[in-house]
Design a protein around this nucleic acid. Structure first.
Lengths: 156, 156, 156, 156
DNA sequence: TTTT
DNA sequence: TTTT
C-alpha cells in the first residue's frame, strides 16, 4: 500500500540522555526526548511568547546504538521518521495514548563528544551485528543514518 | 527563534467529518482525524501486515471553514503542520496527553464535493471575515491553503 | 556523514510517459517530468496567475520498473528524493547544468491503469531480480516504494 | 490551485557570502550557495565516497536582509522552499536552465556572528520597511523566518 | 509536457 | 473512524 504519507521532521535539542532497552532476540531500542521551540508575538500585548514542544523519539537497533554512543542531553539533532501513537491500559482502566516519532533517518547537528566517527549507515538487514560501524576514524561531529524499512513489531 | 524545526507532513484519508468549534471572538477551529497506512511483510511468517495510524488534525479560522465546506469522511488530503501535545487533567487526577497536528498548509487530493471553489488562501490577517473565498466559482476539486503563522492561543 | 540534509517532496502530474534506460549490468533507470503548480493573485492587477514548474524525476531499478508499469502521462504522484545537478559539456564547449530529483520514495496518488498491484517495495538489495513484485494481485491503485540508499553511480 | 506540492528542505553550509540585489521599488533579493554532502560506500571497491551537491538559494526582502546580516561563508543553515527553474537564452542562442530554491522558511544552525538578534519574522506584508526586526536584543545564534506567500514576480 |  |  498505500497512497499515504506519514512523515515527521524535527530539529531540536535532547532533553535527556538516550535510554536503551535490549531485547532477547538481539535487537534494541533507544528513547529520548527532544524539544522544539516556537516563538511568536502576542498581538494584544505585544509580548514575545516562547512555547516548547517535547517529542518522544524512538530509535532502533544500530541507529539506537549510535545515538546512545554519541548523543547527550543538550545535543542538537535532525530527526526524520513517522508518527506512531501507542495505546495501553492505565491502572484506572482507561486507555492512554502516547505519540512517538519512530526514527527513519537522522543527522547529528552538534555533539559534545570529542571523538565522533563517520557513522553513516544504510545497511538494510535487520538485526545485523552491531559492530564496527562507529569508532574507527573520528572524522567529524556529525552522523547520518538511515533506518531500514519497518520490521516486525517488537514488543513496543 | 529558534534553530529548531517542528514539521509534519501527512497524506491520508479522513476518518470522520470535520467538527467545528466557534469562539466568541469570531475565530473558529476544525478538527478531524486522518488515517495513514503502513504495509510491510512479516519476515518470519511472510504475511503482509497493514497498520493504520490515526492523526488528530486541527485547522483554524478560514482554513477550518474551507475544510468543513469541502472535506468529507473518506476524502484524501495532504496536510502540513506542526506537532503539538496538549495535556489536561483526567477525571482521576492524572495528566493526560493528546498529540495533534496543527495545520499550516494543506491540499485536497480528492473530494466528493461536486462543486469546489479555488480555495487558495494566503491571507495573513487574523480573524478576517470569512467571506467570498469559497463558493463563488466552482473551478476544481483541489484547494491549497497556507496558514498565517501562529496567533495567540485560543482556549484549545 | 554528514550533518546535512538534501530532501525534495513533490506532488504533481506526469507530463509525459516514463522513459526507461537499461544497463548492461542489469540495472535500469526511468525518467519522467512532473509538473507542480503555484497560483497567486497579482496584487496590482488582482488577476490570478498560475505558474507551472517542471521537475525531472529519476527512478532506479525496481522502482523504475514499477513506475514504468503503472504510471502514465497525467497521473498524479507523490515523490520524495534528493536534488542532484548533473553537468556536462555542451557542443559549444560550455558547461551545462541539469537538476534532477533522484527518487528515494514515492506513492501513486492516481493512476489510469485499471490493474495495479500492491507494489510496496522495501527490498534493500541492489540489482535484485526484478520479478514477482508487480503484477500478480491487482489490488489497488496506489503503490508505495522506498529506494535503498544510494548505490554506485551508474553512468547517468 | 492546485493539489500539488513543491517543497525542498536542506541543511547545509554556505559556500559563499550572501550576494544582495536591490530593486527600485524597494524590494531586494539575496543569493547564496549551500552545499550538502552524501556519503556512501562503493560496493565493488569498498571505498567511501563523498559527493557534494550545490544548491542555489534565493531569499527575498526582509529574509534576505537578515541572511545578509547574520550569515557568512561556512555557516550552517536549514532552508525550506520551493524549486524553481529559470531559463534564459545563452549567448549561443541556446536555452539555459538554472534551478534555484526559493526560500519560504529558514533557521540558522550556526553563525559566526557574535551578536545575533532573535530574528523571527512572520510578517505577511510585501515590501514592508526593513527596520527594527534585527538588532535589538542579541539573544541567541539562531533565527527562524517564514516568508509570506509568493508575491508578484520581481524581474528575477 | 501535467492538472484544475 | 479512512483508504486500497
Amino acid at each position: 500500500m498505500s497512497g499515504t504519507l506519514n512523515k515527521v521532521m524535527l530539529i531540536g535539542h535532547l532533553g535527556d540522555e538516550v535510554k536503551m532497552h535490549y531485547f532477547e532476540g538481539g535487537g534494541c531500542i533507544g528513547r529520548f526526548p527532544i524539544a522544539t521551540n516556537e516563538t511568536y508575538t502576542n498581538r494584544q500585548t505585544g509580548e514575545k511568547v516562547t512555547n516548547t514542544e517535547w517529542h518522544n523519539i524512538v530509535v532502533r537497533n544500530k541507529a539506537a546504538e549510535i545515538c546512545e554512543k554519541y548523543l547527550s542531553k543538550g545535543d542538537k539533532i535532525y530527526v526524520e521518521g513517522r508518527l506512531k501513537t501507542r495505546q495501553w491500559q492505565g491502572e484506572d482502566g482507561n486507555t492512554r495514548y502516547s505519540t512517538e516519532i519512530q526514527v527513519q533517518d537522522f543527522t547529528f547537528l552538534s555533539t559534545k563528544s570529542e571523538s565522533m566517527s563517520n557513522a553513516q549507515s544504510n545497511t538494510p538487514q535487520e538485526q545485523r551485528p552491531i559492530s564496527g560501524n562507529p569508532g574507527t576514524k573520528p572524522i567529524e561531529n556529525t552522523a547520518h543514518v538511515s533506518e531500514p524499512e519497518p520490521e516486525d513489531d517488537l514488543p513496543f
